[in-house]
Structure formats: structure tokens, C-alpha cells
Amino acid sequence: MGQKMIIEVEGLVKHYGEVKAVDGVSFSVEEGETFGLLGPNGAGKTTLMEIMCGLRRFDQGKVTIHGFDLVKDSIKVRASIGFCPQETLLYDLLSVRENLAFSAALYSMSSKKFKERVEFSSKVLGVSEFLKRRVQQLSGGMKRRANLAASIIHDPPIVILDEPTVGFDPTIKREFWELIRNLKSYGKTVLLSTHDMYEADEICDRVAIMEKGKIAALDKPHVLKKTIGGEPSLHIKVKESRVKKALKILEKYKCTVVADEIQVSATNPWEIMTEVSDKLVSQGVYTDKVEIVEPSLEDVFIKLSGRRLTEEEGEK
């Protein structure tokens, strides 16, 4: 990872009427880094990204991208970014290649460079199989790949992806993560927003957790989990809903119940795992699951906000 900061955001504020959608956000992203904005719907992730892409104005703060001030050098900033929003921004009646050509034209790309970039997209994003097909004939996954290819056809150093895998099934989601990793391997700086904690954990070098327009925490996923998420805990699911009896048996431990699952907190859960299991079985309480669960970014978010990541809907 390079040392140069390619994105710098300082004290960014954006209001929608009375509502403060982005509230004094500051962060910076290193060149070549994959940086995640993690937060529930309505946290201000999309607004923040759209500001960075020049799609929205902001009220206060300073944004520097690729060494250019967003306000003063808006055109240069836009040329440095490949923006891929949640929705597919392709023309249904044009072929994928024609869509790519249109995107390339927006950046006044030469035909030679365009050919090279189409080859790159074919290789890295796997669009060659449907280059000649009209967008209306593509599956959802193909459209997303074509959309990403169109967003980065101009070979930008920075790629901004807004909820890139929302609505994907797990298999396609993993394929898409691989595409994002590929981009990183080509030296691209990736800034992505997500409300999927696993996605952030899987592909991001660093994550900023956003809540109500602010950054609540920012660090590498494993550091966040360790410092904020707490220690690993023992998760037990008992058969026949005998939760009450199990809690009585385990009264000497620090237990909490989350969705019919008993979570036992301990400094070292591996030490007590066998003992707890034996105690339950010896008193006739059988288990479906006994496992040690590491804290996730979801736990980090719960610790920070007191609620789950997926509780709210309807981000603006």
C-alpha cells in the first residue's frame, strides 16, 4: 500500500433542508487502498459519495481528490474518478460495447485507448462474452459487470462504488468481490459503500463506520473488531427451546439471549467450551450448536450505535 493520500475529506457538511445528511465528516484514503464506508441505510454514505463525484454540492468542508480541489478543479476531479452507483446506468437499447464507447466518449478517449480498455474490461471484468449484446438482453449480474466496466473505461485511478453488490445472491456477490480485488491488484484505489458487514470485512483494507451522517469509527476491520467489537463469545443453540433451563444450568456464566441463542461471554471462551457443553448434556439439555464466534463489524456497529446495521430502510 502506498503512502500517498489520494482522497482527503475535511469537515464535510451537507444539509437537506433541516436535516444534516453529512455532519463534519473527515477521512483520507491512501493510494491503492480499498476503503469502505459501512453503515445502515440513511447514514449518509451515498450523499458523501455523490459529493465526492461532483454530483451534489456541499455546505462546508474541503475535498481533495488526486491532488485536485473538488470545487476549484471539479473537471479534473471527475476525470480521476470512476463512479459506479447502485443502479445500472446503461442504455438498454445499446449494446454493451456501444455503452462502453459512449462512456469512453464522455472522457474524450481515443479509439486506440478505447480498444485497450475494452480488452482490459474483458480480461478483468469478464464482459467479452456479452460485448455485442444489448443491455436489455443481459442478466442482472452481467448488467452490473457491464456497469462497472463502463464506470472505469477511462482508466481512473480512483473507483467509487456505491453499494456494488446490493441485491446480489451470495455467489454473484463473491464474484463481484473478486472483481474488486482485481481492481486493487491493478493499483486502483477503491472507495465503496456498503451495509453488508461481511463485504466490508472481506474486501476493505480500512472501514469507516457511518452513523447519522458522522463517522463513528475508522480503522482496519480486525482492529475495529478487536478494539470495539469485544472478545469472542460462545454461542449455544439448545434443542426444544429449553433456553430457560439452560440459563439456569449456566447461571455462573455471563449469559445473554439473542434470538433464541445463548451467548456466553468469557475472557477465553475456548477454555469453557467443553465444560459448558458437558454440563448441559449431563442435565438433559441437548444442543444444536455450540460455537465460538469472533466479534464482527456488526458487533462493532451495535456497540457504537446500540442497534443492528440492517434495522433501517430508505436511504436518501
Binding site: L55, I75, R78, F83, E87, L89, Y91, L106, Y107
Partner: peptide, 14 residues
Amino acid sequence: ERGTLKKIRASPIR
């Protein structure tokens, strides 16, 4: 309406 204006606006075109 199509959403494609975002693509145009995010590009450096004047």
C-alpha cells in the same frame, strides 16, 4: 428518468 444523467454529470463533460 433513466438515471443515466448521473453518468454524464459524473464525467468531466461541461
